[in-house]
Nucleic acid binder design. Structure first.
Length: 873
DNA sequence: ATAGGGTTAG
């Protein structure tokens, strides 16, 4: 609506031309009252103008009412204390703040703001609904004879402007001025209290409640507001008591109760109240439906949800209610019935933004990222609606995970353009976006500049570091999150963000990757103290962490004590036993598992790996042959890869090769070929190794490990020239070998060592230590095996290169710094080479220490000159 | 006086 200026014709009565801008758009042009003569204030038709104005407002024709008002003033008539309330009400309803201000001007000129309480009160109401705080205060100040309505309107306006504290102050001043609060006042007060900080809100809320009892207020809306207030302040029990004791329950009481329970995540209870409502023959309306559906959604009560859907269609076509349809879509999506959700969506006649958003969220949350993006672009083009921050909170993750969508950073541009950059959800989603495209610094930048960091912000940032492999930073940030929590004002419960179960399961894989046992234990104790350890996901992550830190016993203990286990929990345990070379235990656990719960694809991958590392070829093959018929899991290309590894590692290379050739054609064979190549290196088979490498390099000429394995196979067989050639091709193709890297946790820090690396502060000491150690090893009978050294150098040099292998540096560091008797735990990013394996066996004997080395595939526990893997790995 | 759709995880 265009703004226009209204000058005051009565200020200079002789001036007859009127500068009203007639562009104001009205539905129907106003008709002046019957006579052609201009009415004057004392002519009989004056009252008919006023009456017309009032009747338009009364019957809801606000635009017409305003028209009459304008014509009236154009004609030089003064509005009176009947005209002003009518026009102000109309202005308020259509939210035309500009016109409101102009009418205000007229009111002031004519002195009604001080002389008529009714006019002043409607003015107050107008500013409360479409103005600002200053206007409200100014108008209220002017009223000399404040009545109860003035106070109530004033307080209600303050609430609408979210000035909760001020509203409460005014409640006190009202009583001080000897004006008795009534139901209207108490409704506003309940609303104000429910928006205060928790403890404070409850305290004042109880006073409001007591006040209502004192004045014997039994109005249903007072009771309903008090219920709502208690619920929002987390005092659901008080809310329920009010509900139960109140004799005058109406539909709104029921709805309030159901929605309050839903909002407090008390879904079972919400369902129970809903059922009671039906029993008491109270007819649910749209609000009821949209309050109870979230409960069905969270409890995944698809059946109930469908019944409610049917009810909504039968009764009054409640499905047309946008709240109802959004809740339905959400319910179906949460029950993973995306197709039904989409049908509901497609059949809607008018789609609200909430409908689109619910559908988009449903797609994203169920992993249908492409569908989410397609729908989003459709919405942008055809719906006539524009996205809001909620839309983008679903679209950003969809764009991040959608592989065929490339312009991920473009989303950020769009966000900025739309002005959504300061929305918390959007910012968190952007942090995730940048970390997943490897631009972790941008993530951190956004994170650092967040005005409010909630738990999700911290979790997302920590996950980002884990995703990018910066595990130390992840642990650092967890530490900071905790610090922040400790120093936080206990009164501000709403803004605290303690680590939750998601935080822990995000950061535990970081500990596992770093083999940071001490840190992992610290997190474990934190989980116990904060009652998070019983969470399935946390328990599974703890089990995994202990297993990957080499503490199989701890892993098993956590596993045994978990109150609930899911597929992932079991899979983690299989993997754990597999990495420790205990395939037999994994298999017997599997038999226990299938009595309780169905295995999935990952279960079989873990089990094959376990069998493979334990030489249990036949057990593994048997499982492979019956996984589909007995357990209903179709083998995938990954399973084939595992079985090729199983056969190959055991030296059954021909069978492994045959299995690859028999793979169903829909499968990619790369994984299987690379398993075979690895096996050819172990068993020194040049012919098959060449075949495998050829098949791999045709598609993956940029993977260093293929070149390295082939070249190692050649050198081990003495084909030095061929080995060198492979290495040259690799360099020519610009492929860089991933540098070997090992690490060890010491003194609350993870120390990293690269192969041939001299950057560590203790580097000199370590190398000196290793030189002396080498002499002692040789005395014990250690003979260096240089076959896996790629470089074509003389034997002496090779030996010193071997000494530089990163695992040896890490072990030496541990031996120098850690007290005797403490097990040395080292992790490595590549496989331990033959020579290091045999050297570490000797080291464990010479220094009398247990040494645990975890490489990419499994654990090696060295003790008294032996290794737990029995040289089979 | 009552109602909605969103971000993080294995």
């Amino acid at each position: 609506m265009s703004a226009f200026t209204l000058s005051l014709p009565f200020q200079t009565p002789h001036q007859q031309q009127n500068p009203i801008n007639k562009n104001h758009s009205f539905r129907s042009p106003p008709k002046p009252p019957s006579s052609n003569q201009k009415p004057t204030s004392d002519s009989p038709s004056y009252s008919s103008w006023i009456e017309q104005l009032r009747s338009h407002t009364r019957s809801g024709n606000f635009h017409e009412a305003i028209s009459v008002y304008i014509d009236m003033t154009t004609a030089g008539l003064r509005p009176n204390n009947f005209a002003f309330p009518a026009v102000l009400k109309a202005v308020t309803e259509i939210q035309d703040f500009n016109l409101g201000e102009q009418v205000h001007g007229v009111v002031v000129k004519l002195g009604y703001d001080a002389s008529s309480v009714t006019v002043a009160n409607t003015l107050l109401n107008m500013y409360g609904k479409c103005g600002g705080l200053n206007d409200v205060l100014k108008v209220f100040d002017k009223i000399t004879e404040r009545d109860k309505v003035s106070w109530n309107t004033f307080i209600a306006s303050l609430c609408r402007l979210e000035e909760w504290e001020l509203a409460l102050d005014m409640f006190r001043r009202m009583q001080f001025d000897k004006v008795e609060p009534n139901s209207f006042t108490l409704v506003s007060m309940s609303l104000a209290c429910s928006n205060l900080e928790n403890r404070h809100g409850v305290m004042l809320g109880k006073q409001v409640h007591a006040y209502s009892l004192k004045i014997g207020d039994t109005m249903s809306f007072t009771n309903n507001s008090l219920m709502s207030m208690y619920a929002k302040l987390g005092r659901i029990q008080d809310s329920v008591s009010l509900f139960e004791m109140f004799p005058g329950k109406n539909i709104i009481s029921w709805n309030t109760m159901i929605s309050s329970l839903s909002q407090q995540d008390l879904f079972q209870e919400a369902m129970a109240v809903f059922k009671l409502m039906i029993l008491e023959e109270m007819k649910p309306d749209g609000v009821t439906i949209s309050s109870v559906l979230p409960a069905c959604s969270h409890l995944e009560l698809l059946h109930h949800g469908k019944q409610i859907h049917a009810y909504a269609i039968r009764n009054n076509n409640l499905i047309e209610n946008s709240y109802v349809s959004s809740a339905l879509i959400d319910m179906y999506c949460n029950c993973r019935e995306i197709t039904i959700a989409r049908k509901v969506f497609d059949r809607l006649v008018n789609r609200s933004l909430a409908n689109w958003n619910a559908m988009l969220a449903g797609y994203t949350q169920n992993g249908f990222y492409d569908s989410a993006l397609v729908l989003f672009f459709k919405m942008m083009e055809f719906s006539g609606l524009s996205a809001n921050p909620t839309t983008m909170a679903s679209v950003i993750p969809a764009s991040v995970h959608c592989e065929s969508f490339h312009d991920k950073e473009g989303m950020h541009g769009f966000i900025v353009k739309m002005g959504f950059s300061k929305d918390g959800y959007v910012q968190n989603a952007l942090i995730d976006l940048y970390s997943r495209i490897g631009k972790i610094n941008i993530s951190r930048n956004i994170f650092d500049r967040l005005e409010i960091k909630d738990t999700v912000s911290w979790n997302t940032m920590i996950t980002g570091y884990v995703v990018c492999g910066f595990h130390e930073h992840a642990l650092d940030l967890l530490h900071k999150m905790n610090q922040r929590d400790e120093t936080h004002d206990q009164n501000l419960e709403k803004v605290t963000c303690k680590p939750n179960s998601i935080t822990l399961m995000t950061v535990l894989p970081g500990c596992a990757a770093l083999a940071a046992l001490a840190k992992g234990k610290e997190i474990h104790s934190y989980a116990i103290r904060n009652l998070l350890a019983t969470d399935v996901a946390v328990g599974s992550a703890l089990t995994d962490m202990y297993a990957k830190c080499g503490c199989l016993n701890f892993a098993r203990k956590v596993f045994d004590e978990m109150p609930v286990r899911n597929v992932i929990t079991w899979n983690v345990m299989f993997m754990a036993y597999g990495m420790h070379g205990k395939g037999d235990v994994a298999m017997s656990l599997f038999n226990r598992m299938v009595a309780e719960i169905n295995p999935n694809e990952v279960s079989f991958i873990s089990l094959f790996a376990a069998c493979s590392h334990s030489g249990m070829v036949d057990e593994g093959l048997e499982l492979f042959h019956k996984m589909k018929d007995k357990y209903g899991v179709d083998p995938t290309e990954d399973h084939y890869g595992c079985v090729v590894d199983l056969l190959g590692r055991a030296g059954r290379l021909a069978e492994a090769h045959e299995l690859i050739t028999k793979m169903p054609p829909r499968f990619k064979k790369l994984g299987a070929w690379s398993s075979l190549l690895g096996a050819c290196w172990i068993h020194q088979n040049v012919d098959l190794g060449e075949i495998a490498a050829r098949n791999l390099l045709e598609f993956e000429s940029d993977v260093a490990s293929h070149y390295v394995l082939l070249s190692n196979i050649y050198s081990a067989a003495g084909f030095w020239k061929k080995a060198t050639e492979v290495r040259k091709t690799m360099i020519k193709n610009g492929v860089k070998k991933e540098p070997g890297c090992s690490w060890i946790e010491f003194d609350d820090e993870v120390h990293k060592f690269m192969a041939g690396d001299f950057s560590h502060p203790q580097s000199e000491k370590i190398h000196g230590f290793l030189e002396k150690l080498l002499e002692r090893l040789k005395q014990e009978g250690y003979v260096p095996d240089t076959s896996c050294v790629l470089h074509d150098v003389n034997e002496d040099e090779k030996e010193s290169l071997l000494c530089g292998h990163s695992e040896r540096l890490a072990i030496a560091f541990g031996l120098i710094n850690m007290p005797p008797g403490v097990t040395i735990r080292v992790a490595k990013n590549l496989r331990v080479c033959n020579d290091c394996h045999s050297a570490i066996k000797f080291i464990s004997k010479v220094v009398g220490r247990e040494i645990v080395v975890r490489d990419v595939r499994r654990f090696h526990c060295f003790k008294d000159g032996n290794c737990s893997c029995g040289d089979y790995w």
